[in-house]
C-alpha cells in the first residue's frame, strides 16, 4: 500500500468518561515525517499507543505496514520512542542498547555495530559505561532515541522526541529524520510545538481526540487562510 498507516473511525474511551479519540480517520504515506500536532490531552499519545499495539481501540480500523504480516512481524519493523525516557536507570547506556538490540534479535556482531553507530549519532561517545541514572535529562532523551532506532525500523513513532535537548542537537535530529525518510523510513511524531510541527511533511491537527484537519502545511495554511500554523490551528479550532 502507498500508505504505511490507515486509520478509520477510531474510538477510545478511558474510565470514567474520557473520550481520548473520537471517530478519528487519517492516513500516513510511506517515507515521510508525519506530525501529530495538538495540546496535551488531544489524543496524540493514545493514538500512538494504539498504533504500536499497546492499547486496543474500542472501535474502528487500524491498518499498519502490511496486513499480511503477523503482529510480532509488524512489531519487529516498528521503533517507538516513548514520552518518558523508558530506560533501565541502573544499567549503563551500552547495556540498555544491548538489551533492546537483543529483544529485536540482533546478532552479537550487528549489536556491536549498531550500538557504536547510534552512540556516535546521539553524540554520547565516552558515556557508554555510564549508568543511565547519572546522565542528564537531555542525554537520556538521546539514549531513548538510540534505543528506538537500534533495529533499523521501517516505521518510527516518536512521542515528543526533542523535549529537553539543546537547539543544535535538535537541528541534527531533524537532519537525521530527513536522512531516515530518504532511506524509506516513515516517521510519526507527536509535538505541541508549532515550529517543530512546521518541519513535518504532513500534519494531523488534533483537539480533544478529534481530527481538526490533515494535510501538508501549505494546504492547511491555504485552507484556513492563515500565515502560520498557530493561526491555522486556532482557526480550525474555532470552526471545528
Amino acid at each position: 500500500m502507498e500508505n504505511i498507516i490507515e486509520v478509520e473511525g477510531l474510538n477510545k474511551k478511558f474510565p470514567p468518561d474520557i473520550h481520548a479519540l473520537s471517530e478519528l480517520t487519517l492516513q500516513v504515506k510511506k517515507g515521510i515525517t508525519f506530525g501529530l500536532l495538538g495540546p496535551n490531552g488531544s489524543g496524540k499519545t493514545t493514538l500512538i499507543r494504539i498504533l504500536v499495539g499497546i492499547l486496543k481501540p474500542d472501535s474502528g480500523k487500524v491498518a499498519i505496514i502490511d496486513d499480511s504480516l503477523s503482529w510480532s512481524e509488524k512489531a519487529a519493523k516498528i521503533g517507538y520512542m516513548t514520552q518518558t525516557h523508558a530506560l533501565y536507570q541502573d544499567l549503563t547506556l551500552a547495556e540498555n542498547l544491548d538489551f533492546f538490540a537483543a529483544i529485536y534479535g540482533l546478532s552479537a556482531r550487528e549489536k556491536r555495530k549498531r550500538i557504536e553507530e547510534l552512540i556516535s549519532l546521539v553524540k554520547l561517545e565516552g558515556k557508554e559505561k555510564s549508568p543511565v541514572a547519572t546522565l542528564s535529562g537531555g542525554m537520556r532523551q538521546r539514549v531513548s532515541l538510540a534505543a528506538s532506532l537500534i533495529h533499523e525500523p521501517q516505521l518510527l513513532f516518536l512521542d515528543e522526541p526533542t523535549v529537553g535537548i539543546d537547539p543544535s542537537l535538535r537541528r541534527e535530529f531533524w537532519a537525521y529524520f530527513g536522512s531516515l525518510n530518504r532511506q524509506g523510513v516513515s516517521i510519526v511524531l507527536s509535538t505541541h510545538v508549532m515550529d517543530e510541527a512546521a518541519r513535518c511533511d504532513e500534519l494531523a491537527l488534533l483537539r480533544n481526540g478529534k481530527l481538526l484537519a490533515q494535510g501538508k502545511i501549505e494546504e492547511l495554511l491555504a485552507q484556513t487562510r492563515s500565515k502560520n500554523l498557530e493561526e491555522a490551528f486556532l482557526s480550525l479550532e474555532e470552526n471545528g
Partner: peptide, 14 residues
C-alpha cells in the same frame, strides 16, 4: 512506572 514496559510491549516480545 519508568515506561520500559511500554517500549517492550511495542516490540516483538510477548
Amino acid at each position: 512506572s519508568q515506561g520500559t514496559f511500554e517500549r517492550l510491549f511495542a516490540s516483538p516480545v510477548n
